[in-house]
Design a protein around this nucleic acid. Structure first.
Lengths: 341, 341
DNA sequence: TTGTACGCGTTATCAC
DNA sequence: GTGATAACGCGTACAA
């Protein structure tokens, strides 16, 4: 019952080989005769051998662990990103040690220490809490996703392009005034470029536009309250004009749509809405919402690949330190649904 | 730059203690004089020591790893469950090694092997793929969440009670005919009890009711198509009656609500809807949906606690094997919003 | 209170 | 092709 684990030693005795040969069977089987390979294979079955990767790691230093610190899994964006990151296991074979961020620097530092204690080979970070300057100092391969990334590698959505796509769609839909509603994003955060893109295109096209930048709350009810104010403000300020609303994300887009629906019982012709992310909520809204789709699968894959490259480099005899930071941009895709024309 | 890691040996030399004393500093500091504790503490800083938990595990066998196999993170229910499971780290200190299930037995078996190779101390399983009979044979502490659990411990929502709450609410809301719309859940799955609970209460109260059990599709569009058929069927079959719809989950409840909204521009008085799960979609729908809230945080916590108990037991000198399986039920909470009265 | 010696299960370095 | 033997970094009797 309480099988004490069988080790290379047991297999060696059972087969009259040495531990070394057993090890070779796993790491370099071709160096054994086919015959002997089969003998060992049979022994593994007879003894019901269970490999121990921890011992392996201690001996060769390759943990095959990647650490992840992600803010939460409440937002679909993060959940799906983690989903896609985890699924890169099939491709790269790395296992993931996951912590959800707390927003407290000290706690997240503790997490990082824990990750380092388990000898992670690299780290993917989505949490915003710890400055990239500090992260870089840990001297371990790191890739950031959609966060401040001044001193570390990163993979992000091409936020500027996304804003351009959304804004252009609203213009094509015949909107006469464009409003971008967002929180007051810091300039260093990648998504700040959405604001830039919106402004640039509006100015380029010479279209009337307005930026509404304020804290939009962190719960549905709060956001709804604030967005209701904004809705009334816009409605009153631009009467009779066709209004195009570029929302910061699909959650807000959905709230705005619900507000309008509860006001009019439908989406009137003089309102257009575009969201961001292509979350399920966008397609599951009372009317499917046009949105800018982040290619989460691609972002995750690129992040993993970028990280793997660095980790592989480290395993070489004479690793070349990275010359310069890599910041990859993944182009988003515009998804036209029923809130635009 | 490429600091070769400092070990207990280095610290020992630096402080003129032995490795053992250094080890004791970490595991039983009280056995050292305060003075010496401080000497070592300073040495750790001077040398920038980085603990190696893998070596520790190899030596004492306690990996502090829990393995998780979860179907996906696309559904909010799973994402939030993982979120809550991960957050038990603060309480119990166990780290999580996470795999997302594929639905393929062979692949998930491979995952389990990988987890075992990393010497996980226990496992939490949400994936449905591998029968509990087989899981039990791995002879490692296991807790299942909301899946077939005949041969293993589990923590589930009290699905029967949830159905009772939902059904009762519809009756109280004055509905004259009740319809439960669900997929054809196998009897061994915990959520089958929702169907039971619905039937029992309806019969007990002698109210007209109907069960619509069929595959509801796996995408929004497919589900919507099927639910539209069902909606039309119900509308035609029970004209003039106040209809109470008990949906299998909030996603379906939201789709049904959208169908009704697109038909009538509002939710007419002769339709009531209750969902299940308390997903964000329920509160973010065009009209906030009444639902049965699964207490995901509690389920996750109870699961972790149950697992920790078993793992602790194993660490005792003479571990007592578990006498009988534990199946915990967590009572759901009824959330009344605007789709019922 | 502190130290010695060995074990944990695997890989790496030499030999043969 | 195969085998000793020494790492890897830490825990733990057992001794002192």
């Amino acid at each position: 019952m309480n099988k004490k684990k069988v080790t290379f030693n047991d297999i060696a005795k059972y087969t009259n080989f040495s531990k070394t040969t057993i090890s070779r069977y796993f790491n370099n089987p071709d160096s054994l005769t086919l015959e002997n390979q089969e003998i060992i294979a049979q022994a593994l079955i007879d003894l019901d051998y269970q490999e121990n990767k921890l011992a392996k790691v201690l001996a060769n230093g390759k943990s095959e662990f990647i650490g992840i610190i992600i803010p939460n899994l409440y937002l679909h964006y993060y959940a799906e990103m983690l989903n896609q990151l985890l699924s890169t296991y099939e491709k790269f074979g790395y296992k993931f040690l996951v912590f959800t961020g707390t927003g407290h620097e000290e706690t997240e530092r503790k997490y990082i220490q824990e990750l380092l204690a388990y000898k992670i080979e690299g780290m993917i970070i989505l949490s915003h809490t710890i400055p990239s300057r500090e992260l870089a100092s840990y001297n371990i391969p790191i890739v950031a996703i959609e966060r401040e990334d001044q001193y570390i590698n990163s993979v992000n959505t091409d936020n500027y392009m996304g804003a351009v796509q959304a804004t252009s769609l609203l213009i094509k839909s015949g909107c006469q005034v464009l409003v971008h509603i967002n929180s007051d994003v810091p300039e260093k955060v990648p998504s700040y470029k959405r604001i830039l893109g919106f402004k640039d295109i509006c100015q380029e096209q010479g279209i009337l536009h307005e930026l509404v930048l304020r804290d939009l709350g962190s719960s549905y009810d709060k956001s709804r309250k604030i967005l209701l104010e904004i809705f009334n403000y816009i409605k009153d300020k631009y009467p009779g004009m066709k209004k195009g609303l570029f929302m910061a994300n699909d959650t807000h887009a959905n709230i705005m749509l619900n507000i309008i629906f509860n006001e009019y019982g439908t989406l009137p012709d003089d309102f257009c809405i575009v969201g961001f992310d292509d979350s399920p909520i966008a397609s599951e809204a009372v009317i499917p919402i046009s949105t800018v789709g982040q290619q989460i699968d691609k972002i995750a894959y690129e992040a993993a690949e970028l990280l793997v490259k660095q980790m592989d480099e480290r395993k070489k005899r004479r690793p070349e330190p990275q010359k310069e930071l890599v910041h990859k941009n993944i182009t988003p895709v515009l998804i036209r649904r029923q809130t635009t024309f």
